[in-house]
Design a binder for these strands. Structure first.
Lengths: 240, 240
DNA sequence: CCAAAAGTGTTCGCCGTACACCCATGA
DNA sequence: TCATGGGTGTACGGCGAACACTTTTGG
């Protein structure tokens, strides 16, 4: 394929066009200590070096946006195999004060517990409760706001919540997660009824006794069943 | 601001990065002859010159994505002041066979009737019923599919349908529009009930007699009232 | 036996759905 | 007067919302 510097073989309508720096930025959500959290890092390049920033990086010549996002997340945090969804292309010419950089934001959901070790390797990475996010560079705060809105929209109609929990989880845990996402309390009985009615959870023969003497049953999300039902026209739906 | 060719004053972390061609492509919907329609044009540059294509164009150096979209639509069709919403950033390296071009797609809704004259000026532009879309270049067919899905999602929860109708419209017209969007028939009584219950339509003292002897009342959408209600936590909702 | 969290059912009101006839009018 | 499209009301069922007590068990 034609590289950046040898443009002579392109048709004039292509070669005469402006070329742009393109970055990806990633809003990474996790769930821990009964709180929804955001991963931020200290920016590693000037200007604003050391300020809090989303994970991000430039898109290489022959790399898809999705691949760039995966690469950047992997490099800066060690995380891989996480839930990723494109959010928005941010194209204001002055959004980066240095020069024009287009940025495509992605939001990501990860299971904190399964990845803590890897994150320790990421110098400067830190989790913030979404109720206490520090000042972020450029338009990153706006990206977070959009991502949260999107997460709240998605969590009603797609089983994305489970991307934030361990494979085995309890119903009280699940409810606390949803309460953290929506910053709102739900009725225990109604919440359980709705979740279980959908028939997507399997109860395991094991209890989590870390929070009570009685213990709470572990459940797991049945992905296969979800695929089947979806193919039959079923829609995940939590009227919160 | 720093131009494309004089990169020497940028920090090394910026100047060493790949630069990309970035385009916008626009899925323009209209409603006419009781059908939902898509606007396509004959591609004006090689390769694939003359093939059916979405309206699109490259993003200039100091131009936001939104501005680029407005400019491109204006230039190719004469249309302005239309409803625009960003859809997706398409970043596969080989999506354009000539060279890598990132494309950000937007979907647009316009009132056909109000703009027919301008469109006549746009050589090669044509409306296609969404049930009979011709073969489109590159990944444009996929963009249309995404845009349709998005329109169907949005039309349930936001009053976007009115962007496709004249200011004055009748309830039979409105219903036909929704039936065209969802390719599904609705019960007349229930449809009217739901729409009118929301209290967003005002009946005018005028009838459209072009389709029946009795005539159908004209209505108009009350934007101001919609803003008020939305501020109070009201959500537009059509359970179709 | 007590504290602390897990688990469970019922009632009520609203809304979505199905469904069939009268109205107005120009030709 | 009749053909054509415009307009209207009701009954039923299901689901979301509100609500309080029992169960388990480690200390």
């Amino acid at each position: 394929m034609i590289s950046n510097t040898s443009q002579r073989s392109l048709p004039a309508e292509y070669s005469s066009q402006a070329r742009h720096l393109v970055a990806v930025d990633c809003i990474i959500f996790g769930f821990d200590d009964d709180e929804l959290k955001l991963l931020a890092i200290r920016r590693q390049i000037a200007p604003n070096r050391g300020d809090w920033s989303l994970i991000g990086g430039f898109v290489n010549q022959e790399e898809s946006l999705h691949d760039a996002t995966v690469r950047v997340i992997k490099k800066l945090t060690g995380l891989r195999r996480i839930y990723l969804s494109q959010l928005y292309a941010h194209g204001e010419p002055d959004r980066d004060p240095v020069t024009r950089v287009l940025s495509v934001s992605y939001y990501a959901l990860i299971r904190c517990q399964a990845h803590n070790q890897e994150l320790i390797d990421a110098a400067g990475a830190r989790w913030f409760s979404i109720t206490q996010i520090p000042e972020l560079i450029f338009d990153h705060q706006q990206m977070v706001t959009m991502a949260l809105a999107e997460l709240r929209k998605e969590a009603r109609v797609k089983p994305v919540g489970f991307e934030l929990l361990p494979q085995k989880f309890t119903l009280p845990q699940l409810q606390i997660l949803y309460e953290a996402i929506y910053q709102k309390q739900f009725d225990k009985r109604n919440f359980r009824k709705r979740i279980l009615q959908m028939g997507l959870l399997e109860r395991l023969d094991e209890k989590d006794k870390s929070n009570s003497r009685k213990g709470a049953w572990y459940y797991q999300f049945n992905r296969e069943r979800y695929r089947q039902l979806t193919a039959d026209g079923f829609y995940f739906n939590l009227p919160l």
